[in-house]
Amino acid sequence: MSAVALHQASSSRLQSLANKEWAWLAGIILLMSAVLTILEPNFLTQFNFYVLLRGIAVTLIVAYAQLMVLVVGQLNLSVGATGGMVAICTGGMMEVWGLPTVIAVALGLLIGVGAGLANGLLTTRTGINGFIITLATASAFTGVTIGLNDAKPWYNLPKRFVEFGQGRIGPFPYIAIVTIIVGILLWVLFERTLLGRQILAVGGNQRAAELSGIPVDRILVIVFVLSAILSSIAGIILMARLGSAQPSIGSDWLLPSFAIPIVAGIALSGGSAPVINTALAALLIALIDNGLVLTKADPYWIQFLLGLIILVAVGLNRLRAVREAKRTTAS
């Protein structure tokens, strides 16, 4: 509660805080890049940059899908399940029905919208915590994902679609175009549109937003739908990158989906949407992953480190919030 009040009392202060976050992230990224450049000759190669960007292109959209609901103080455990379900459905429509790419992707996104509507309406109509609703729907979605083709992947995807997923210009993968467009649209949403301001208002203080005439329930449903659309986009471009619709798509997204926005310094109570910092945080985490791969470390270290990073990042955020609060009361 006090965090919310603090947020409203000093949004300009938060602004400068966010700027500091930006500098911190950039500093750590530069430092890590320098270390990797010195230690690993393979780091500064075009192919490694391609591998790095290819990974970020997907995980950043996954992180945005979670960011979307974190902004309003909710959680979405079905980000991965939605991405997996939409990928399998889209792949199935391409292979079995032979639908053209554009139509299959459009229908796939529509399925994503349906999943988001289910989450949003169940959460707002019943007033039950989004955590439990999305835990249950995630199980249902995963059931569909694996049941649709008996846990087997679809391999016969349109050639052009796969070429788009695997092609690159120098170190720059085509699929990153989608990610950049998504990032710009989200930035515009939160910085320039009425809807974005309403979403932030609901996240900052739901009661106050309601009293000032914002249709809170409708905003929450929209947020869950947007989150599901982002999950679906991530699922579809990952499918294009892999060249097949794997039912395992999305099964390991839970941790990065929370870790990246948290490292970006998002207020877990809601009300902040650090779109650019989230991109930097995705880059930072991809660098750690890349460093572990290049140094041939045990792959399980990434899971250990991601957990540690979450704990340290929330701890630091918390510490800073407490210091800020003390400073505000002192002055």
């Binding site: 995630a138 995963t142 059931g143 008996d150």
Partner: peptide
């Protein structure tokens, strides 16, 4: 798989 859906 359908059992998982059912439990959800």
């Amino acid at each position: 798989f359908w059992i998982q859906l059912f439990i959800g």
